[in-house]
Amino acid sequence: GNAVQEIMIPASKAGLVIGKGGETIKQLQERAGVKMVMIQDGPQNTGADKPLRITGDPYKVQQAKEMVLELIRD
């Protein structure tokens, strides 16, 4: 079955996860074999953390989460 996890991405790092024209998030999805969606909560909310929703095989979702956390670590 499918697992769904959401991680909060600091607004300052959201661009890093998505990448230029969505390149990075696309590569992450391909590498991890999961679906990732950045939940954009309207323009008034630009400074707030953005939830990144990861959907897929539970094991792969976990892997994907680690990859993203690695990416946004300072």
Rank of each mutant, 00 (worst) to 15 (best):
G1W: 02
G1V: 15
G1P: 04
G1L: 10
G1E: 09
N2Y: 05
N2T: 15
N2R: 14
N2F: 15
N2Q: 15
N2W: 11
A3I: 15
A3C: 15
A3Q: 15
A3S: 15
A3R: 15
A3V: 14
A3H: 10
A3T: 15
A3Y: 15
A3F: 15
A3N: 15
A3E: 15
A3M: 15
V4P: 02
V4A: 03
Q5D: 14
Q5K: 14
Q5V: 15
E6H: 07
E6N: 05
E6Y: 03
E6T: 12
E6V: 11
E6S: 04
I7Q: 02
I7W: 01
I7R: 00
I7C: 02
I7Y: 01
I7L: 11
I7P: 00
I7T: 02
M8N: 08
M8D: 04
M8I: 12
M8C: 03
M8H: 06
M8L: 08
M8W: 04
I9F: 01
I9Y: 00
I9M: 03
I9K: 00
I9A: 00
I9H: 00
P10H: 02
P10K: 03
P10F: 00
P10V: 00
A11T: 08
A11L: 07
A11D: 12
S12K: 14
S12P: 13
S12L: 06
K13M: 06
K13E: 05
K13L: 06
K13I: 12
A14R: 13
A14V: 12
A14T: 15
G15D: 11
G15N: 14
G15F: 14
G15L: 11
L16K: 13
L16W: 08
L16A: 11
L16G: 04
V17W: 03
V17G: 01
V17Q: 01
V17R: 01
V17F: 14
I18P: 03
I18C: 06
I18T: 14
I18F: 14
I18D: 05
I18G: 05
I18Y: 06
G19P: 01
G19Q: 03
G19V: 01
G19E: 03
G19L: 01
G19A: 03
K20E: 12
K20L: 09
K20Q: 14
K20N: 12
K20H: 10
K20W: 04
G21V: 04
G21P: 02
G21C: 08
G22Q: 08
G22P: 03
E23F: 06
E23A: 15
E23I: 09
E23P: 02
E23N: 11
E23H: 15
E23K: 15
T24S: 08
I25R: 03
I25K: 02
I25Y: 03
K26M: 06
K26L: 07
Q27G: 12
Q27T: 07
L28I: 11
L28P: 01
L28M: 14
L28E: 01
L28Y: 03
Q29P: 01
Q29R: 05
Q29G: 05
Q29K: 04
Q29D: 01
Q29I: 03
E30M: 14
E30H: 12
E30F: 06
E30P: 00
E30D: 11
E30G: 06
R31H: 14
R31G: 06
R31V: 06
R31P: 02
R31W: 04
R31K: 14
A32Y: 12
A32C: 13
A32Q: 08
A32I: 10
A32W: 09
A32E: 04
A32L: 12
A32T: 14
G33P: 01
G33R: 06
G33T: 03
G33H: 06
G33E: 07
V34L: 02
V34N: 01
V34S: 01
V34C: 07
K35Q: 14
K35C: 06
K35T: 07
K35L: 06
K35Y: 03
M36L: 08
M36P: 01
M36D: 01
M36I: 09
M36F: 04
M36V: 03
V37Q: 11
V37H: 04
V37E: 13
M38K: 02
M38C: 04
M38G: 03
M38L: 15
I39S: 12
I39R: 13
I39E: 13
I39A: 10
I39F: 15
I39M: 14
I39V: 13
Q40C: 11
Q40K: 11
Q40F: 11
Q40V: 09
D41L: 07
D41P: 09
G42V: 08
G42P: 09
G42I: 09
G42R: 12
G42K: 15
G42H: 07
G42N: 09
P43K: 15
P43N: 05
P43D: 09
P43F: 08
P43W: 12
P43H: 13
Q44P: 13
Q44G: 13
Q44N: 14
Q44H: 15
Q44D: 13
Q44A: 12
N45W: 06
N45V: 09
N45Q: 10
N45Y: 07
N45D: 14
T46Q: 12
T46D: 09
T46S: 10
T46R: 10
T46C: 09
G47K: 15
G47M: 10
A48E: 14
A48F: 12
A48Y: 11
A48S: 10
D49R: 05
D49E: 12
D49M: 06
D49C: 09
D49F: 07
K50D: 02
K50T: 12
K50R: 13
P51G: 10
P51A: 12
P51D: 03
P51N: 10
P51W: 08
L52E: 00
L52A: 01
L52N: 01
L52I: 09
R53G: 02
R53E: 06
R53C: 06
R53L: 08
R53F: 06
R53N: 03
R53Q: 12
R53I: 10
R53W: 04
I54F: 04
I54P: 00
I54R: 00
I54C: 02
I54W: 00
T55I: 11
T55P: 00
T55M: 13
T55Y: 05
T55Q: 12
T55W: 06
G56I: 00
G56Y: 00
G56S: 00
G56V: 00
D57M: 05
D57C: 07
D57H: 11
D57I: 10
D57V: 07
D57Y: 04
P58H: 13
P58R: 13
Y59R: 14
Y59D: 15
Y59C: 13
Y59P: 14
Y59F: 13
K60P: 04
K60E: 04
K60I: 01
V61Y: 00
V61S: 02
V61D: 00
V61Q: 02
V61L: 03
Q62H: 08
Q62R: 09
Q62A: 13
Q62N: 07
Q62V: 10
Q62T: 12
Q62D: 13
Q62K: 12
Q63H: 08
Q63S: 09
Q63F: 06
Q63V: 10
Q63P: 02
A64H: 00
A64P: 01
A64T: 03
A64M: 02
A64R: 00
A64W: 00
A64L: 00
K65H: 09
K65G: 07
K65W: 02
K65T: 09
E66G: 10
E66Y: 05
E66D: 13
M67E: 07
M67G: 04
M67Q: 08
M67P: 02
M67H: 08
M67S: 08
V68I: 11
V68Q: 02
V68N: 02
V68W: 00
V68A: 04
L69C: 10
L69E: 14
E70R: 09
E70N: 05
E70H: 07
L71V: 12
L71Q: 07
L71P: 02
L71I: 14
I72L: 14
I72Q: 03
I72H: 02
I72P: 02
I72G: 03
R73Y: 09
R73H: 14
R73G: 15
R73M: 13
D74H: 04
D74Y: 04
